[in-house]
């Protein structure tokens, strides 16, 4: 009987840990190509950017990023785009920081438009509260 209880306990512990692992996996870091465009600060608490799309419209760079909250708790994300020219120099004065509420398990799209045609590259800066 005791052995049965122990075995059940062990199974439950294994299941729990696998659940935690699965959640950790869901919060896996952003893909390398996306990660190269990110500048994060501190613990990003299960928030990740899993896809970034960029296109040049009317000669200005337009970027969309999918910000995903992999956890159930709502998160406040602070973000901004930093625009760079072909030589890596900053274009413009820098955007203002924006606060974004991302509900638990939700994905939100943030969009940025380069301030001029000189914008050839970008970084998405963000931290999570």
């Amino acid at each position: 009987m005791i052995q049965l209880i122990r075995a059940t306990g062990l199974c439950a512990a294994l299941l729990l840990s696998s659940g935690v692992m699965a959640q950790r996996d869901a919060a896996a870091p952003s893909p390398p190509a996306v990660a190269a465009k990110l500048a994060t600060r501190g613990d990003i608490k299960g928030v990740r950017v899993y896809e970034i799309r960029m296109v040049r419209r009317a000669d200005v760079l337009v970027v969309e990023a999918d910000i995903q909250n992999t956890e159930t708790e709502d998160r406040q994300v602070f973000y901004r785009f930093r625009w760079l020219d072909g030589g890596g120099m900053q274009v413009g004065d820098g955007e203002s920081w924006k606060q974004l509420l991302v509900y638990g398990q939700q994905t939100k799209v943030v969009k940025g438009v380069a301030p001029s045609s000189a914008g050839a590259d970008f970084r998405l800066e963000f931290n999570v509260e």
């Binding site: 419209r57 009317a58 000669d59 200005v60 337009v62 955007e95 203002s96 920081w97 924006k98 606060q99 969009k111 940025g112 438009v113 380069a114 301030p115």
Partner: peptide, 18 residues
């Protein structure tokens, strides 16, 4: 922040329309 967000959104929208 409201002023900055409005200005950035409107400018971006105007620029990308062509």
């Amino acid at each position: 922040s409201d002023l900055q967000m409005i200005a950035e959104k409107m400018t971006g929208s105007l620029l990308e329309t062509g």
